[in-house]
């Protein structure tokens, strides 16, 4: 949805995706622009809750990748859809 330019079906989807992107790809700077955009449309409490969820998945991703949790075969089609070859994922 984001790649195609179509609006996400999830309310505030653009702002939420931008927040996750800013938090996940720039590790030295606060996601100020993305956070303020989300605050503007959804309020500060909503933005703080969203930041907490995104931060928690930084933790969960590292836990699962760090211990070698196997990728469930049911998710292989999804990996392909996202451009990854499931058998190349080192799990």
């Amino acid at each position: 949805m984001i790649a195609s330019g179509e609006p996400p079906l999830v309310p505030f989807g653009f702002e939420l995706a931008a927040l996750a992107q800013a938090m996940g790809t720039n590790w030295t700077q606060p996601p100020t622009v993305a956070r303020e955009a989300l605050v503007a449309v959804a309020g500060p409490e909503f933005a703080e809750r969203a930041i907490g969820v995104a931060a928690t998945f930084q933790m969960m991703n590292r836990l699962l990748d760090g211990v070698g949790a196997p990728v469930n075969k049911s998710l292989h089609p999804l990996a392909k859809e996202l451009g990854f070859e499931p058998l190349d994922i080192p799990r």
């Binding site: 939420l16 996940g24 790809t25 969820v53 998945f57 969960m60 990748d65 990728v71 999804l78």
Partner: peptide, 13 residues
């Protein structure tokens, strides 16, 4: 949010 973050981290669990 969880899915977007996991996608960026290439975590497929």
């Amino acid at each position: 949010l969880a899915a977007r973050t996991s996608y960026l981290n290439e975590c497929f669990y």
